Amino acid sequence: KFNKELSVAGREIVTLPNLNDPQKKAFIFSLWDDPSQSANLLAEAKKLNDAQAPK
């Protein structure tokens, strides 16, 4: 279960257009550290992506 959630969340995070590479890497490392938090980490990444969207 975690492997699928981890890969789905990881793929989504790397495609978020408004995150820079260090931010993406930080989220990916957090996913590896605790795969059970993949849904929460993906939600946080999406929030940050939205907040950094060009206005």
Rank of each mutant, 00 (worst) to 15 (best):
E5N: 10
N3C: 15
K55S: 11
N40M: 13
G10S: 14
S30H: 11
I28A: 01
S38A: 14
F2A: 06
A9T: 11
E5S: 11
L41H: 03
K55P: 11
L48F: 03
K1Y: 14
V8W: 14
K4V: 13
L31F: 02
P22G: 14
R11S: 07
A39L: 11
A53V: 06
D21T: 10
V14H: 07
K47V: 07
D34T: 07
D50Q: 10
W32S: 05
A26Q: 10
E12K: 09
S36R: 07
P54T: 08
K4G: 11
A45H: 01
N20C: 09
K4M: 11
P17T: 08
D33M: 14
W32H: 06
L16M: 11
T15K: 14
Q37C: 08
V14N: 12
A9H: 07
K4A: 13
A51P: 01
I13L: 05
P54C: 13
D21E: 12
L48I: 06
F27N: 00
F27G: 00
Q52G: 04
A43N: 08
D50F: 08
T15H: 11
K46N: 06
E5V: 11
V8I: 13
P54W: 06
P17N: 05
L48D: 01
E44V: 08
K1S: 12
L16C: 05
V8L: 13
D21V: 09
L41V: 12
A45S: 02
L31A: 02
K24L: 04
A26F: 14
N3K: 07
A9Y: 10
F29D: 05
Q23N: 01
K46C: 05
P17K: 11
A45K: 01
A51G: 04
K46W: 05
L42D: 01
K4W: 13
Q37M: 07
L42S: 01
L42Y: 03
P22V: 14
A45P: 02
P35N: 03
P22E: 15
Q52M: 07
I13Y: 01
K4D: 10
L41D: 00
D21S: 07
N40F: 13
T15N: 14
L6G: 04
L41F: 04
S36D: 07
A51I: 11
F27H: 00
K24E: 00
P35D: 04
F29L: 12
F29A: 07
A45Q: 00
F2M: 11
A51F: 09
K4N: 11
A45W: 02
A26L: 09
D34A: 05
N20A: 09
I28L: 13
R11T: 08
L42I: 09
K4F: 10
E12R: 06
L19A: 00
E12P: 01
N3H: 12
D34C: 13
L31H: 00
G10V: 15
L31M: 09
K55L: 13
K46F: 05
L42V: 12
D34S: 05
